[in-house]
Amino acid sequence: MSQHLSKKQFAQHMENNKAKFYRLAFCYVKNEHDALEIISEATYKGFINLGKLENPEFFDTWMSRIIINCAYDLLKKQKKYEFIVPDDTLPAREEDLSVDDRLDLYQALNTLQPDERTLIILKYFEDRSFREIAETLKLPESTVKTRLYRIIGKLKSAVSV
């Protein structure tokens, strides 16, 4: 028999992960207001559908998927698909890049589709494993790897042009 989270446990998990969830939302919309709107909507949807979470140990993955879907919904509504990552979520390697290289990286990320950006964000900015990404996106792990390597190739081409 599966164990479900209580309302109190849901609230505690949300509190414990609020910074991580906010960063995830912010990566899509690049502003505090919209990121908070996404988190609010995702929290509501998560709370309403709490009974559908069959395994509490996958709470982070489950909520990440809800946040990503809410971000997509907001972006579709606003027709905003440009992408700039906030400085505090950039990988440490980014410090080694010159200003020109950073601008090239941001421009390259702007060329990606939202689903491609999701893979990059989850892998390199959220530091998720291939398995965690696969669980979050409900894709086979091999598909995640293949798509990610294809996207990296696409980014390398865009940066080297």
Rank of each mutant, 00 (worst) to 15 (best):
L5F: 00
L5N: 01
S6F: 05
K7L: 09
F10P: 00
Q12T: 02
H13N: 14
H13D: 03
N17H: 13
K18M: 02
K18W: 07
A19K: 13
A19S: 14
Y22C: 04
L24D: 00
V29E: 07
K30N: 11
K30G: 10
D34A: 13
L36R: 14
L36C: 12
E37D: 14
E41F: 07
Y44Q: 12
F47P: 01
I48R: 09
E54D: 11
E57I: 10
E57K: 13
D60F: 10
W62K: 02
M63K: 05
I66K: 06
I66V: 09
I68Y: 01
C70E: 15
D73L: 12
K76T: 07
E82A: 13
F83K: 11
I84W: 06
V85C: 09
P86E: 05
D87M: 11
D88R: 07
T89K: 15
T89S: 12
T89N: 11
P91T: 08
P91V: 07
E94D: 08
E95L: 12
D96E: 14
S98H: 08
V99K: 12
V99A: 14
R102A: 02
L105W: 13
L112N: 02
Q113A: 15
E116Q: 15
E116V: 04
R117L: 09
I120W: 01
I121R: 00
K123W: 00
Y124C: 03
D127C: 14
D127H: 12
S129C: 09
R131C: 04
R131M: 07
I133V: 15
I133T: 11
E135L: 15
T136H: 02
E141W: 01
T146Q: 13
L148E: 01
R150V: 09
I151T: 07
I151R: 09
A158K: 03
V159S: 03
V161M: 10
